[in-house]
């Protein structure tokens, strides 16, 4: 288990896998909400990276990674609210949330 010789590598690998899962979800699912779920997972993977680098980095007292994660959580919350509002509006307009059917630019 050389890849897990340092704890940081374990966290980074988990974050990478989480990011890949989120990306796969966002790229392969048809439902718009599921795509948003995938994006949230990717953002969370980035947060895990930030926290891990903060924890094992040379200057944890500078709080840089921690602050970045906090701001990223706030931005992700805003993104989720606006994104889901858009999905609801699209559903009201086109009666579907299937991304394969919502491919035209004209409403």
């Amino acid at each position: 288990m050389t890849c897990f010789s340092t704890p940081l590598a374990g966290y980074l690998l988990v974050a990478a896998l989480l990011f890949a899962i989120g990306l796969a979800g966002a790229l392969t699912r048809r439902n718009a909400i599921l795509v948003l779920i995938g994006i949230e997972l990717m953002l969370n993977a980035a947060n895990l990276n930030l926290i891990a680098f903060w924890r094992f980095g040379p200057h944890p007292e500078m709080l840089t990674g921690l602050m970045f994660a906090l701001f990223s959580i706030a931005v992700a919350a805003a993104e989720a609210a606006v994104g889901l509002g858009l999905v609801i509006q699209i559903h009201r307009h086109l009666k579907t949330t299937d991304l394969d059917q919502i491919s035209r630019m004209k409403g």
Partner: peptide, 26 residues
């Protein structure tokens, strides 16, 4: 989509494992 995700994971994993020597200890 699955292919792209797998490629991204392979790239990230490769980068992490390659730099595992230089990573900081706790």
């Amino acid at each position: 989509g699955l292919g792209i995700a797998a490629a991204v994971f392979a790239l990230l994993g490769w980068a992490v494992l390659r730099s595992v020597r230089g990573l900081a200890q706790a």
